[in-house]
Design a protein around this nucleic acid. Structure first.
Length: 139
DNA sequence: GCCAACGTTGGC
DNA sequence: GCCAACGTTGGC
């Protein structure tokens, strides 16, 4: 099982909207970046991810799960672009902000810190554990 | 609102 | 195939 981080602007697609989709989930469409797409191609059903709000809020606010592997992005006819489907699992108890992450030396290698522009990123098992601890969630 | 970092495009 | 120009993202 792999861990990931999905980044979204609240005005484009927020955690609340994701939660409203329930177990049916929603496709993570609109990605037009090869690196991000390639990570989505590696995802397997059951993989977990953090849901991160970029721009104003800049915090991890929830846990999501991959429920469908990469398939063509329905928002474009361009067959280069694919996306996975994800569903909200649960909100975090305490949002973990970018500042919190930067203040934690063990998280200094996170892609979120090193390459802030990448919208879909891998998270290591250790990083996952540490962030979950900070967020007050059990897994 | 600014700007640094990064990715993409297109001319050569 | 290189690289300058341009567009976009996201932190500050």
């Amino acid at each position: 099982m792999q861990y990931w981080l999905f980044k979204s602007e609240t005005t484009t697609w927020s955690w609340d909207q994701q939660v409203a989709k329930g177990d049916a989930g929603e496709e993570w469409d609109g990605v037009r970046n090869y690196q991000a797409r390639n990570f989505m191609r590696e995802m397997k059903v059951g993989d977990r991810g953090f849901f991160y709000h970029s721009q104003k809020e800049r915090a991890i606010v929830g846990i999501v799960e991959v429920i469908a592997e990469a398939h063509p992005d329905s928002t474009t006819d361009d067959d280069r672009w694919e996306c996975v489907d994800i569903k909200a699992v649960k909100p975090v108890k305490t949002p973990v902000t970018l500042d919190d992450i930067k203040a934690e030396p063990r998280l200094s290698e996170m892609v979120l810190v090193r390459n802030s522009r990448l919208s879909v990123q891998p998270v290591t098992a250790e990083e996952w554990r540490i962030v979950c601890e900070m967020a007050g969630v059990s897994d």
